[in-house]
Simulated assay, not measured.
Amino acid sequence: MCLALPALVVERRDGDEALVDLGGVRKSVSLALVPEAVPGDYVIVHVGFAIGRIDPEEAARTLALFAELEAGR
């Protein structure tokens, strides 16, 4: 099974690198597959690579579902 998570692009870095925020966790990822992504965009991240852009409303719904799952633990 694969898991890809929505993350907010915080800043672009050198080359194809970017800093993203996922629920307060910041991580460097590659934007090589989504070169048009800019700070403020949400991207789907899988194993250190942004694999697509996602609508902010869809990202919010997905993140809310993850928060529900976490609360039910």
Score class of each variant (00 low, 15 high):
Val10Arg: 12
Arg12Tyr: 05
Gly23Pro: 09
Glu58Thr: 11
Ala59Gln: 06
Arg53Pro: 00
Val10Ser: 04
Pro6Val: 01
Glu36Asp: 12
Gly52Thr: 03
Phe49Lys: 11
Leu19Asn: 01
Glu70Pro: 03
Leu63Ala: 11
Val20His: 02
Ala50Leu: 09
Leu69Lys: 10
Gly72Glu: 10
Thr62His: 05
Gly23Thr: 08
Ala64Leu: 03
Glu68Leu: 08
Pro39Leu: 09
Ile54Arg: 09
Glu70His: 07
Pro39Trp: 11
Asp21Arg: 02
Val20Ile: 15
His46Gln: 15
Gly48Arg: 06
Asp16Gly: 09
Ala37Cys: 09
Val43Asn: 05
Val25Arg: 15
Leu63Asn: 08
Ile51Gln: 10
Val47Asn: 14
Glu11Cys: 01
Arg13Tyr: 02
Phe49Met: 13
Leu69Phe: 07
Leu8Pro: 02
Ala64Asn: 08
Pro35Ile: 09
Leu19Gly: 01
Gly23Trp: 00
Leu19Tyr: 08
Ile44Phe: 12
Glu57Leu: 11
Gly48Cys: 10
Ser28Asp: 10
Glu70Lys: 14
Gly24Lys: 10
Arg53Asn: 04
Val20Glu: 02
Asp14Phe: 08
Pro6Phe: 03
Asp16Ile: 00
Gly40Arg: 09
Gly48Trp: 13
Glu68Pro: 00
Val25Ile: 15
Phe49Asp: 13
Asp41Tyr: 02
Glu68Met: 05
Tyr42Ile: 03
Glu11Asn: 01
Leu19Trp: 08
Leu69Thr: 12
Ala59Cys: 08
Phe66Tyr: 14
Ala59Lys: 05
Ala37Val: 05
Val43His: 07
Glu57Trp: 06
Ala32Ser: 13
Ala64Val: 00
Glu11Arg: 12
Arg73Ser: 13
Pro39Ala: 06
Arg13Asn: 06
Ala50Ser: 04
Ala67Phe: 02
Leu5Met: 13
Glu57Tyr: 04
Lys27Val: 14
Ala50Gly: 05
Ala60Asp: 12
Ala59Val: 05
Phe66Lys: 03
His46Ile: 00
Ala71Pro: 05
Pro35Leu: 06
Tyr42Phe: 15
Leu31Glu: 03
Arg26Pro: 01
Ala71His: 08
Val10Glu: 14
Val29Trp: 01
Ala37Pro: 05
Arg53Trp: 03
Cys2Asp: 12
Ala32Met: 12
Leu8Asp: 08
Leu8Lys: 13
Ala4Ile: 00
Ala71Lys: 13
Asp16Tyr: 10
Leu22Gly: 12
Glu36Cys: 02
Ala50Thr: 05
Arg53Lys: 15
Ala67Tyr: 01
Glu57Ser: 12
Asp16Phe: 12
Val10Gln: 07
Gly72Pro: 00
Leu63Asp: 07
Glu17Trp: 08
Tyr42Pro: 03
Leu31Lys: 02
Asp21Gln: 08
Ala37Arg: 04
Leu22Asp: 14
Leu63Arg: 11
Glu58Gln: 12
Ile54Gly: 02
Gly52Tyr: 03
Met1Val: 13
Leu65Asn: 07
Ile54Trp: 04
Val20Pro: 04
Leu3Trp: 01
Gly24Val: 09
Asp16Ser: 12
Leu33Arg: 15
Leu3Lys: 12
Arg12Phe: 08
Ala59Trp: 04
Pro56Asn: 00
Val47Thr: 11
Val47Asp: 15
Cys2Leu: 13
Leu31Phe: 10
Asp21Thr: 05
Pro39Gln: 11
Gly40Glu: 09
Ala7His: 04
Leu5His: 11
Pro56Ser: 07
Asp21Leu: 01
Arg61Asn: 07
Arg73Thr: 10
Gly24Asn: 10
Gly48Ala: 10
Gly72Val: 01
Val29Thr: 06
Glu57Cys: 00
Val25Leu: 15
Leu63Val: 04
